[in-house]
Structures are given as C-alpha cells and as structure tokens.
Amino acid sequence: MYKKTKYLNGMLFYPTFVVSDLIVIFAFLAIFCLAIFFFPDLLFTGDSEIPADPFNTPEHIKPEWYFLAPYQFLKLIPELTALVVQTLGMLALVFLPFIDRSEKKGLLRRPAFTLIAMSVLIFWIWLTLWGATS
C-alpha cells in the first residue's frame, strides 16, 4: 500500500486546521444569511409563484445558472453533436487521473494542461454569461 507522508512538522488538525475551517464556514454563513434575510427575492421569482399548468407554456424558459452552460451549448451546435461532445467532455473529466498521468502538480509546471483547463473553464463561464443575458 501507498505509504503516506506523515508531516511530522505539519500543523495540527485540531485545533489549528479545524479553526481555519470554521473561519471559512462562518464567512460563508455571513453571506448565506445576507441572501436569506435581505435578498429573498433573488431565490423565488416569477413563475415559481404560479401553480404548474401543463396547458400553458411560459414564454421564456431558462434553467438555473449551473445548467445554463450546457443548455446554451445545445443551442450553439446541432443537438446530437452537442450531446456527444458534452458526454465525451464529462468522461474526460471523470477519467482525468487516468488520462493525465504526469507526476507534476503545480499550475506552471504543466503549461499545456493549464492552458486547456483554463480555456474550457473560460468557455464554460462565457456560455453561462451568454445564457444569463440572452
């Protein structure tokens, strides 16, 4: 079995790392509470306040932000091609450890990977923004 590094001079998980974890959690909770208590309109809008009616299609249907990119991608190129490309992309992401087998880890030590990953990420963000504004 793989022998793990023991980090004999490392920081203690408890209390040091647990406290830094808690700081992040409380920072998150601050933003979270701000959204719930001061901007409730952001969460539930328009069509979510009307009961479902199978015989009345709303004019503008748009998915949530996290599905916007794949949704826009389906509009960009023929649907079947888009589905195939996205499935292959997902599979590449899932099996990434078996495709990218180099041992180098840092961002700058593997420029080719960084370039590809950054391009895909920027493309994804661009699709999301395009979907949000269209």
Binding site: T45, G46, D47, S48, E49, I50, P51, A52, D53, P54, N56, T57, P58, I61, P63, E64
Partner: peptide, 9 residues
Amino acid sequence: PWSQLSFWA
C-alpha cells in the same frame, strides 16, 4: 414545489 417554473424547467 410543482410551480410553473418547476414544471416547465
């Protein structure tokens, strides 16, 4: 929630 949004999305 079975709203218009849920149904059509």
